[in-house]
Nucleic acid binder design. Structure first.
Lengths: 150, 150
DNA sequence: TATTTCGTTTAATCCAAACTAAACACATTA
DNA sequence: TAATGTGTTTAGTTTGGATTAAACGAAATA
């Protein structure tokens, strides 16, 4: 007994919703992304609200978040007034970049503290510097992946 | 006019709290981590609650989370009944591992879906597989960092 | 044993983020 | 023009996680 496709699709959409939530995105944004990954085609604004069973306001917010991260793109269809959305061309590279940006922000915050620690406090300075280095390393590793893909 | 050390310390603790929150940890856990990074020494349970101005319950919860991720360790002091906590030996390696575990869980979830997609749906399967591959790559890159450090 | 000192757990509260419904602004169409 | 079809914004509500106070159990001390 194999699972019906429609069920697999729903499960996938919900899974991506949970994963997104885990990554600090609204769950509805994740579900929207999941739907577009699955379908592949351009889907109309109203259809998204209908299929995901959320308000138009939620679609508006979620789509703008995903757009800002360049995971999806808004497209126009000739003769159609509605906005359509579809998966961005290389969403994963952009996903990596968003992660990298977040890491760099964290490192910058820590670096700011580092500048306020007097030279005398070498031990403290060392521990804080190690923390900053961690973010530098992680960000660097992600940059490497991005380069490898290019 | 340089900033007083105590102020720099407080700022740092709060910053780590915000960064932790951004990473899906309770803010109080991040503040606890920040304090232990700064101080370097073993700090008593009651002192943590006092210095961070939170309840003992919060310290209990936060410390257990950080312990589970091996970012801090619980230590005993001879003749002292209180628990003491201090920064783990190599907290950043363990931090990386926690991240990697999370990524692997996400990938496993997506892989499960992948197995439910019939062969005929090559396009869908391709897109979902690309998503899974993204997590595989990212996890692999992190594993590389861990190895480099060893 | 009784008391005190711990850390944990639980039930209730708090708070911020997410969501909705409705108002809105703008463009298109009739 | 008026009416309709759009996406956005906003005010209010809902919801879930974080926090607390208090009860609890265990261990040390008296």
């Amino acid at each position: 007994m194999t699972k019906p496709m429609e069920q697999t699709r729903c499960d996938f959409i919900e899974k991506i919703g949970l994963i997104a939530q885990n990554d600090g995105l609204p769950r509805s944004a994740g579900r929207l992304l999941g739907l577009l990954v699955w379908d592949g085609t351009a889907v109309a604004f109203a259809d998204l609200a209908e299929q995901l069973q959320v308000s138009r306001g939620s679609i508006s917010t979620a789509s703008r978040i995903l757009e800002a991260r360049r995971l999806i793109k808004r497209v126009a269809k000739p003769g159609q007034r509605q906005d359509y959305f579809q998966l961005a061309d290389d969403p994963y590279a952009n996903m990596l970049q968003s992660v990298a940006v977040g890491l760099d922000v964290a490192r910058a915050e820590i670096d700011a503290t580092l500048g306020d620690i007097p030279e005398g406090e070498a031990a403290i300075k060392g521990r804080v510097a190690a923390y900053a280095a961690f973010y530098t390393q992680l960000s660097g590793a992600i940059a490497t992946i991005v380069d490898d893909r290019a």
